[in-house]
Structures are given as C-alpha cells and as structure tokens.
Amino acid sequence: MSTTQPFTFPKYYSYPPFFTRQPTLTSYHAQLQKWSSLILSYCRHHRLFKLSIIDALDSNLFNNKTLGRRLREVNVREVLEYMRKEGRVEWVGKGTEGNEVWVWWRNPEEWATAVYEWVDETAQKNTVLTLYELTESEATLSQGMIDRCGGVQIADWG
C-alpha cells in the first residue's frame, strides 16, 4: 500500500523545541499550524485516512528517534483538536475523545472533483459503478487515489 519512497520530513521536524508545547500564544499558534501541515502531508504520503493516536505516538510522525524527542499524547490531542476545528480531522465515532481520527488530507469537495475527473477521463460517464469498482478496480489503483478507507468515507457521505 504505502509507497516505497520514504517520507521526507520538513526541516523543523529536526528542531528540538518543535516537540515542546510553547507557552507563548503566538509561538503556540505557529507550532500548531506546523504540526497540522506535517500530519496532513505525512498522511497523504502514506495514504492514511485514519490515524490511531496510540499507534501514531510511536511512529516516526510523533517520535523523532534520531533527535530523541517525541510529542506527548496530551499535546498530540491538542494538535488534533486544533485540526478538528480547522476541519481537517474528525473523530471516529461520536465522542470527542476517541482514539482514532479521520484525516481529511483532501476534503469532500476535493474528493468529488477527483472522482469526477477520473470518471471523465476514463469515459465512464453515465455508467453505473459499484463502490468496489470505484475503490478496488485496477484502474483506480493505478491512479492511486482511493483505497478502502476512502471508499468508506465516500459511502459515509451517501
């Protein structure tokens, strides 16, 4: 599933203070924005639609092993809460304090455009496509746009 090419982290990923919650408001805001964009690009690169906090804590995303610094769970939740307010993430299930989040590295409108363009390109307008065809067919796989999780999302939208 995941691409062979490793994800290149941005430069600030190796900046030690990046892993400490900044008490100053302006710094904190900038820090949240940086984390938000890092999580989104990481998920996009690895085609992750769902992020489990517990698992992610030990992943490269939140744990910089070369630096020996990691983002603590409390702070991860803060970042995710910030992203939820921005509309980039949604808790799986009803509660606000779940352990998993949907990560919208493309929001629904962006997905709609992508699907439409794919249908248009492959001349399948006015053809009925099953969800399976849409998500698992060789054609879409080559496009590398959607996987099962994405499909679930699409199904969710109705």
Binding site: P16, P17, F19, T20, Q22, P23, S27, G68, R69
Partner: peptide, 10 residues
C-alpha cells in the same frame, strides 16, 4: 514572551 525565543523541555 516577546517571541524571540522558544523553549524546549527535555
């Protein structure tokens, strides 16, 4: 506080 520095707790 003035934004010139930031902190790192380790």
């Amino acid at each position: 506080e003035k934004g010139a520095l930031c902190r790192e707790e380790s």
